[in-house]
Amino acid sequence: MRLLHCSDLHIGKRVNGFSMLEDQRHILAQILAVAVREAADAILIAGDIYDKTIPSAEAVELFDWFLTRLTEQGKPVFFLSGNHDSPERLDYASRILQNQQVYIAGSYHGTALTHTLSDEYGPVHVHLVPFLKPGIVNGALQTHCESYQEAMEEVLRELPVRPDERNILVAHQFITAGGVSPEQSDSELISLGGVDQIDVSVFDGFDYVALGHIHGPQRIGRDTVRYSGSPLKYSFSECRHQKSVCLVELREKGIVSVRLIPMHPLRDMRKIRGRLEELLSEEVAALADRNDYLHVTLTDEDTILDAIGKLRRVYPNVMQLEFENKRSQDSEEYGFFTQEAVEERSMDSLFSEFYQNQNNRPMDEAQKQFLEQCIRQIGEVER
């Protein structure tokens, strides 16, 4: 049996003010093509379907398109709510959709959704555990869990896992391996204080664990516990990621193989650095797709008016712009003066240093004399 594992679609997401819907439609079409080409028997989507709990109409329409195309291929689809999703909204019409082989785990009420598939080696039990917090589990099971670890242990204890048969778990949580955290990026909610950590050992009874929540594809503890990662880059900290989906092949009990299938975005996300004149040259612009989403670092020492406007005439999707030159370095080195430090400095010395930082050169004698005259006039007015 072949299962296609993906997660963290974040449909409707905006990155630095740019809508990602066109890019998401492109990558969802790719996932659909992979499912058909690789003859996947089912699709597992491990949470964060949408980027917001109340997704836009356009985001809902796009996911509807994706689900419809998958069901037209006769492929069962399993998905659950992540921390970005509204469980109740995902649950809408879920019982009706089961008739179309679409299995949804939005809200948790004490029983995780389990559905059984089968192939020539026997049954495969797919268990769906949506994003959970201890409070949700305590309310549903009347327990007194204080940690995410305890909550997950209680939930798994309730699952109808048959040790002699194949069991798949789909979940959306922060999983560690012996205290080692997964690699994270800026586009994720960062764990605070480790309270949401769950050790991978709780999943020892499962043949494969399809995880969502972390955007970089990676194994956790063993090859068969995996974050598929997001299929698109959602921050510049992900520039070096090779986005992919996981094709999981199950044979007889205990025989599992995983292959990562690369995703190719409509527009890549990358960083470029240099002087404005260099970056605008045809030679440099032709090195990669100029329509990519860019973080640009300019190293020019001179002040540039409308730098981002000039850049966007060549690179239309510049998302972020920063400067790296002597002025920016001096600003980082010296920082802001405290009130006490300002009070101890003379007005002319403060202004002289400000002028130096802004123009990368000291004031000439005529400018110094003009400054002294202005300061005297201000002093006379105050008296």
Results as ranks from 00 to 15, higher is better:
residue 204 D to G: 05
residue 284 V to C: 04
residue 190 I to A: 12
residue 135 G to D: 09
residue 103 Y to S: 01
residue 95 R to Y: 12
residue 275 R to N: 07
residue 40 A to G: 13
residue 154 E to Q: 15
residue 209 V to R: 02
residue 131 F to D: 03
residue 250 L to Q: 04
residue 13 K to R: 15
residue 285 A to L: 05
residue 35 A to P: 06
residue 224 T to N: 14
residue 46 A to R: 07
residue 319 M to K: 03
residue 157 R to P: 01
residue 229 G to D: 05
residue 296 V to E: 12
residue 240 R to V: 02
residue 110 G to M: 04
residue 9 L to Q: 08
residue 39 A to Q: 15
residue 318 V to R: 08
residue 200 V to T: 13
residue 279 L to P: 08
residue 159 L to S: 02
residue 307 A to G: 08
residue 139 G to K: 07
residue 37 R to C: 05
residue 116 T to N: 04
residue 304 I to V: 12
residue 308 I to P: 01
residue 245 V to Q: 05
residue 259 R to T: 14
residue 295 H to R: 13
residue 225 V to F: 05
residue 42 A to S: 10
residue 232 L to I: 01
residue 4 L to R: 10
residue 205 G to Q: 14
residue 260 L to T: 13
residue 316 P to F: 10
residue 292 D to H: 04
residue 243 K to Q: 11
residue 119 D to M: 11
residue 223 D to Q: 07
residue 183 E to S: 14
residue 36 V to H: 11
residue 377 Q to P: 01
residue 312 R to C: 14
residue 361 R to H: 15
residue 137 V to N: 00
residue 21 L to W: 05
residue 15 V to S: 04
residue 327 R to K: 12
residue 292 D to W: 11
residue 329 Q to S: 12
residue 190 I to M: 06
residue 9 L to Y: 10
residue 290 R to V: 06
residue 9 L to C: 08
residue 352 S to G: 15
residue 184 Q to A: 14
residue 93 A to Q: 08
residue 21 L to R: 00
residue 55 P to I: 00
residue 69 R to G: 06
residue 87 P to H: 03
residue 119 D to G: 07
residue 353 E to Q: 15
residue 111 T to Q: 13
residue 171 A to I: 03
residue 228 S to E: 04
residue 110 G to K: 03
residue 185 S to Q: 00
residue 260 L to K: 09
residue 266 L to Q: 09
residue 266 L to F: 07
residue 271 K to C: 14
residue 293 Y to L: 14
residue 326 K to I: 14
residue 349 S to I: 02
residue 213 H to D: 05
residue 54 I to T: 15
residue 347 M to Y: 04
residue 139 G to I: 04
residue 293 Y to N: 09
residue 223 D to N: 12
residue 147 S to N: 01
residue 220 I to G: 03
residue 210 A to F: 00
residue 139 G to R: 07
residue 327 R to W: 06
residue 363 M to D: 07
residue 201 S to R: 14
residue 207 D to V: 02
residue 348 D to C: 04
residue 129 V to L: 03
residue 25 R to C: 02
residue 167 N to T: 09
residue 298 L to R: 02
residue 247 L to N: 08
residue 253 K to C: 10
residue 80 L to V: 00
residue 246 C to R: 01
residue 51 D to M: 08
residue 365 E to F: 10
residue 266 L to C: 09
residue 224 T to W: 01
residue 291 N to K: 13
residue 268 D to N: 15
residue 340 E to S: 15
residue 185 S to W: 03
residue 265 P to Q: 08
residue 339 Q to F: 08
residue 102 V to N: 13
residue 366 A to E: 11
residue 141 L to D: 00
residue 209 V to D: 09
residue 361 R to A: 15
residue 302 D to W: 06
residue 323 F to G: 05
residue 285 A to W: 04
residue 85 D to L: 03
residue 220 I to K: 07
residue 68 T to E: 12
residue 358 Q to T: 07
residue 7 S to W: 01
residue 348 D to H: 11
residue 299 T to Q: 10
residue 138 N to M: 03
residue 249 E to C: 10
residue 64 D to G: 11
residue 379 G to N: 15
residue 99 N to Q: 15
residue 160 P to H: 05
residue 128 L to I: 10
residue 191 S to E: 12
residue 294 L to G: 05
residue 77 V to K: 09
residue 121 Y to I: 02
residue 109 H to F: 10
residue 82 G to L: 00
residue 235 S to A: 11
residue 346 S to I: 06
residue 323 F to P: 07
residue 139 G to V: 04
residue 241 H to F: 14
residue 25 R to Q: 13
residue 99 N to Y: 14
residue 332 E to D: 07
residue 272 I to Y: 07
residue 244 S to I: 02
residue 116 T to Y: 01
residue 158 E to N: 06
residue 118 S to G: 13
residue 172 H to W: 04
